[in-house]
Write a protein that binds this DNA or RNA. Structure first.
Lengths: 197, 197
DNA sequence: ATTAAATTCCAACAATGTGTTGAAAATTCA
DNA sequence: TGAATTTTCAACACATTGTTGGAATTTAAT
C-alpha cells in the first residue's frame, strides 16, 4: 500500500476496473451478496491483488464513497453565502457521480453514506438559523437541522432514483421556496408564539 | 413451515431467542457480519432449525421489520383526519420497538426498511396536499411528499439515535408547526406566485 | 537503457461458513 | 394417547475467505 496520495498507473487501472465491475455487479444483486471472488473475476484482476489494496468489499466501497464525498464537500464549500444556488450545485455534483449515487442512495444502499452526506449538508443549513436567529436553543436547532437536511436528502434520493429526472433547477427551485419561504419564517418567529392556523 | 398465521409454542420461543441474539450481535458488529452460525450458537438453537424457518439472516430481519411495520401501519391508520396527533403516535410506536429501530434506522441500518416506513408515512402526508390544494401537479406533489416525509423520518431517526431523548410530544410539536405553519402555507399559495422574501 | 521499487500474478493453504440431507428425538396440541 | 410439527444431530459437498511466498511484470526516475 502506498502511504502517499499519488497512484501508480497500474494501480489506477486496477482500481478503475474493480470499480466498474462493482457497479455492474451491484446492478444485479445487493452489495452484501457481492463476493471478492466474482468481483475480481469480472474485473479480470487477481484476487490477491484485491487484498493488496482492500480489506474487503466494504472497504473498497468506502473508498469510492470518500472519492465522491470529497467532490461533494468541495462543491458545497466553494460557495459562501449565496444560498440560493446551493441546492442546484448539489444536484450537479450528484449528476456527475450518478452511477455510484444510485447504488448508495437506493434501497440496498448504505445508511452510513447517507449520514455522511447529511453531515456535509448540515454544515451549510445550520448556519442559516444560526445567522438569522441567534438565540435558538441547541435542541431546537438540532430538530430544524435534521428536518431540513433530511428533507433535502430525501428529495435528492428521489431524484436520483427517478429514471426520467426533472431538470435539477426545477427541483432546486421548489426546495429553495420550501426552505426559505416555508421553514425560515417559522424559525424566525419561533420565540414565544403559539401555532397560528 | 406453517402456512397459517398461528405459531407453535416452540416456534415462538425459538424465534424469540433468535431475535434477542440478533439484536445483541448487531450491537457488536454490522448486520452484514453476523453469520447464521454465531447467531444460532448464541441463541442456543440448532443451525438446522434456523434454516427450517429462514432462508438467511436477511430473511429473518425482514420478518422482524414486517412485525414492526404492521404495528406502525396500524398505528398510523387508526387515526382519521386528526393530523395533529399523527406525529405523536409515530413516536409512541417507535418507542415500543426501540431496540429494533435503533438498529434499522442507525448507520449500518437498512435503507429498504426506511423506504418502507417512508411509504407508510407518505400515505398520510400526501393526503394533506391532495385535500387542501386539489389542482397540484403530480410532479410537485411528489417533491413535497419526499421533502416532508424525508424530514419527518430524519427527525425520527435522530430521536431514536439520541441517548437522552426529549419527550416525544416536544418534537412532535415542533414538527407539526414546521409542517402546518411552514410547509402547508407555501403549498397552498403555490399557484403562480414568485418567491416573496 | 538500467535499475530499484512497487505492483501484479499464481498456486496453494487452512479455516470458516453455507445450504442441504436423512433420520432420530422431542415437543405440541387436539 | 397419537399424529403432526418442530428440533436436534451428524454429515456432506461446496464456496469464500484471508493469507502466504515467490516469480513475473510494470512503473517511474535516473
Amino acid at each position: 500500500m502506498n502511504t502517499k496520495g499519488e497512484l501508480n498507473r497500474s494501480v489506477r487501472n486496477t482500481k478503475k476496473r474493480l470499480r466498474e465491475s462493482l457497479i455492474k455487479l451491484v446492478g444485479e444483486k445487493p452489495l452484501s451478496a457481492v463476493t471478492v471472488s466474482e468481483l475480481t473475476e469480472d474485473a479480470d484482476v487477481n484476487r490477491s491483488t484485491f487484498y493488496f489494496h482492500y480489506k474487503d468489499v466494504y472497504d473498497m466501497v468506502t473508498e469510492m464513497e470518500n472519492l465522491f464525498l470529497a467532490d461533494f464537500s468541495v462543491a458545497l464549500g466553494a460557495l459562501e453565502q449565496k444560498s440560493h444556488d446551493t441546492i442546484t450545485i448539489l444536484f450537479k455534483c450528484l449528476e456527475s457521480h450518478m452511477d455510484l449515487c444510485r447504488i448508495l442512495l437506493g434501497a440496498n444502499g448504505d445508511m452510513s453514506f447517507v449520514e455522511k452526506m447529511k453531515r456535509i449538508v448540515e454544515l451549510k443549513c445550520s448556519r442559516i438559523w444560526k445567522d438569522a436567529v441567534p438565540d435558538l436553543s441547541d435542541e431546537e436547532t438540532a430538530i430544524f437541522d435534521s428536518f431540513v437536511v433530511g428533507g433535502v436528502m430525501s428529495t435528492l434520493q428521489a431524484w436520483v432514483r427517478d429514471n426520467d429526472r426533472q431538470p435539477a433547477e426545477a427541483i432546486a427551485g421548489v426546495l429553495n421556496r420550501l426552505v426559505l419561504d416555508g421553514i425560515c419564517p417559522v424559525v424566525a418567529n419561533w420565540q414565544g408564539n403559539q401555532r397560528q392556523v
